[in-house]
């Protein structure tokens, strides 16, 4: 893409059905406005990779039937309780579940960003996760003198990484601050789509202080401006989560009917005029 700046619907259209889609954890920078655009376009058959967990974003996508495979270390609404559509989907076996553990998701992405087929990782031995994840292997450390088992996890190469950040500059560089898992996701993914609070005139490479927290434009395939784009989640210290909206979701999504009503009313609601 020569021109990275697109609108939310174009960004959602750039995520094809069946994509392996990587999304960050709730406190990292969740592209909620883009998620609503994805729901509007009726995305299907996603393989969702949560880096390394998710909350309302995954729950909404699962509730709308958009997810075929879920790869995650946990799904929870945190202080607002269990994620109801996730729980229901597992009960009815309507999604394929790939239970993970947080550092294994990071390790899989790190393998991909290095172009490696797999990554060794400490721990996990003795966990039932090894039984239910046949794609995770145990080998003997080839460098050890005595037998020493170690786990290998395969590379995770998402088709698309999708996240929300505060700022992009006019050249398409994205400021991610110290949320460096967003950089890892972009390195590992084939394409990266980002929503930002604001597009600014500042050149992010003009100041080394700023540059340290920048995802360079050559990793970025599309940027949509979406003020309050993480709503109802918070964006770092930029704005707080919307407690009323999250409580309302947690209550409504307990039943399939409640979720449908929420989706019709709140789910397509626009927090500000941006969408």
């Amino acid at each position: 893409m020569n021109e990275p700046f697109i609108d939310l619907d174009a960004l959602a259209a750039a995520i094809p059905d069946g994509a392996k889609l990587a999304i960050p954890t709730d406190y990292s920078g969740v592209a909620m406005a883009a998620t609503r655009a994805l729901v509007r376009r009726g995305v299907r058959d996603l393989h969702l990779v949560c880096v390394p967990t998710s909350g309302i974003q995954a729950d909404i996508l699962i509730g709308t039937g958009a997810v075929a495979t879920l790869e995650t270390s946990a799904i929870t609404l945190g202080e607002y309780g269990p994620a109801p559509r996730f729980t229901e989907a597992l009960k009815t076996r309507s999604i394929r579940m790939m239970d993970a553990t947080c550092p294994a998701v990071h390790a899989g992405l790190q393998a991909a960003e290095k172009g490696l087929p797999f990554m060794p990782i400490r721990g996990i031995l003795g966990s039932d996760l090894l039984t239910i994840r046949p794609d995770w292997r145990v080998i003997d450390d080839p460098f050890a003198e005595a037998p020493a088992p170690i786990v290998l996890v395969p590379a995770i190469r998402p088709d698309v990484a999708l996240f929300h950040a505060p700022l992009a500059d006019r050249a398409g560089n994205v400021w991610i601050g110290r949320r460096r898992e967003l950089i890892t996701m972009a390195h590992a993914a084939v394409r990266t789509l980002v929503t930002v609070e604001r597009i600014v005139d500042e050149d992010f490479f003009a100041d080394e202080m700023r540059t340290a927290g920048v995802l360079p434009s050559f990793y970025v395939d599309g940027i949509a401006e979406a003020p309050r784009g993480a709503w109802p989640l918070r964006l770092w210290s930029t704005y707080e989560e919307d407690e009323a909206a999250l409580s309302a979701y947690a209550a409504a999504a307990r039943s399939a009917e409640g979720f449908r009503v929420w989706l019709d009313n709140e789910g397509s609601a626009v927090p500000m005029a941006a969408e």
Partner: peptide, 10 residues
């Protein structure tokens, strides 16, 4: 069903 294993296995 609970949320999942988080980082515990490691």
């Amino acid at each position: 069903r609970w949320p999942g294993s988080f980082g515990s296995a490691y």
